[in-house]
Write a protein that binds this DNA or RNA. Sequence first.
DNA 1: GAAACACATCAATCAGAATTGATACGGAGA
DNA 2: TCTCCGTATCAATTCTGATTGATGTGTTTC
Lengths: 110, 110
Amino acid sequence: MNETLLQNEALLQRFQAVAEETRFRIVQLLAGGERCVCELQAELEAAQSRLSFHLKKLKDAGVVSDRRDGRWVHYSLVPGALEEMRAFLGEVKPEEGWKPLAPRDGPCCS
Amino acid sequence: MNETLLQNEALLQRFQAVAEETRFRIVQLLAGGERCVCELQAELEAAQSRLSFHLKKLKDAGVVSDRRDGRWVHYSLVPGALEEMRAFLGEVKPEEGWKPLAPRDGPCCS
DNA sequence: GAAACACATCAATCAGAATTGATACGGAGA
DNA sequence: TCTCCGTATCAATTCTGATTGATGTGTTTC
């Protein structure tokens, strides 16, 4: 199995996790620091099972981690995960002064 | 209308655009420079209408731009869009040495 | 202008993800 | 132990987005 493909898969999963409105907002809230589920619930005005569903998605993708404290569970961002996503967008971003590939000779498609 | 909300909406749309396998791969290919549709079609082994659908998503999100050249259309990345996404992940990423918020006093939820 | 080509769009179908309501689980306090 | 509370999970439904096949549009070449 190709290592890079697996990395890509995990990376894609992270983008998928963040690219949904509720989860996008969760990430924004967690940027301010750790939050327990009930706090998120209050701030997002989301049903409990719905929030739990989205938190699981984020956790499965490795974007957040949880910490149990008595009956409460606190969620926070995983810095490394976000860093990887940034790195991907960095690699992908053409350098300043970058030029398109020279047009290929011959017909566009063979 | 709130300015920040609109920005968020556009940003979310960009994440949604990138967070799909076919489009994720398109972005990776375009990282190497401009490509025409038929080249992408060959490299992705995707049906033409399918590819066109995904390119439109990326374009609507502002992640790519197109350039007509005779009968060919060439797509390339929009550096600024990727930069904004990076910036978001940067803001959102806790600083090194960052500490969780101090636990609130009183019960977690009122 | 006719034919061939590159690409876009549309309508119908299909698939996967999100929502909801009910239920289960685990910890804390009486 | 019984009960309450915070959270997770499950099954059913609903919604959204992707795929497919056909058709449309603009461009080149003859």
